[in-house]
C-alpha cells in the first residue's frame, strides 16, 4: 500500500498528514491526533457515535477513508465551541439534562448542529427523523429532542 500525503482543514486549522489507504478517519482523529470526541460505537454506520462534519455536513468517520478527505474541511465536536464560548447546542444539552453517560453526545451534537444549519426551525418530528441514526441507550431521547428544539428559531409567522 502506498502512503499518501493529505491536507485537510481540521477544526479550522490546516493539517497535513501521511496516511495509508486503509486508515479510517475515525482512527486518525483518535489515535493520531488525539481528538477522542468522536467515538467508536459499532464500526458499521449503525450508531452515529463517530459523526463529524465533512464540508459542513454530517458523516460517519468509521466508514470514511482518511485518504478520501484530502482537501476537505472536517469539524469534530472539539471544534464546535468558539474559544471558551460553547455552541448553543452544547449549552442546551447541559440545560435540558440531555447528557447521561455522554458516549453518544458528541455524535448527537454534531448531527444536531447540521440539522439546525440546514433547517433552523425544525418541527419535533423533523428533529427525531434527523437524529434517527444516532443511538442513545440512556435517555430515551426526550431530553435530547427538547435540547435541540430549544435552539431552533421560531418559525416566521408562528
Amino acid at each position: 500500500m502506498t502512503e499518501t500525503s493529505i491536507t485537510l482543514t481540521l477544526n479550522g486549522k490546516k493539517k497535513t498528514l501521511r496516511v495509508r489507504p486503509n486508515e479510517l478517519l475515525l482512527n486518525v482523529l483518535r489515535d493520531r491526533l488525539f481528538l477522542t470526541g468522536a467515538k467508536y460505537g459499532c464500526g458499521i454506520g449503525e450508531c452515529g457515535a463517530c459523526t463529524v462534519l465533512i464540508d459542513g455536513r454530517p458523516a460517519l468517520a468509521c466508514l470514511t477513508l482518511a485518504v478520501a478527505i484530502d482537501g476537505k474541511e472536517v469539524v469534530t465536536v472539539e471544534g464546535l465551541a468558539r474559544g471558551d464560548e460553547l455552541d448553543p447546542l452544547q449549552e442546551a444539552f447541559l440545560d435540558h439534562g440531555a447528557v447521561q453517560c455522554g458516549f453518544c453526545t458528541p455524535g448527537m451534537i454534531m448531527t444536531a448542529r447540521s440539522l439546525l444549519d440546514e433547517n433552523p426551525s425544525p418541527s419535533e418530528e423533523e428533529v427525531r427523523e434527523y437524529i434517527r441514526g444516532n443511538i442513545c441507550r440512556c435517555t430515551g431521547y426526550t431530553s435530547i429532542v427538547s435540547a435541540i428544539l430549544s435552539c431552533a428559531q421560531e418559525k416566521e409567522g408562528a
Partner: peptide, 11 residues
C-alpha cells in the same frame, strides 16, 4: 474487527 479496515489495497 469493525474498529479497523483490515484489507490492504491501492487507492
Amino acid at each position: 474487527n469493525t474498529r479497523l479496515l483490515l484489507p490492504e489495497f491501492e487507492y
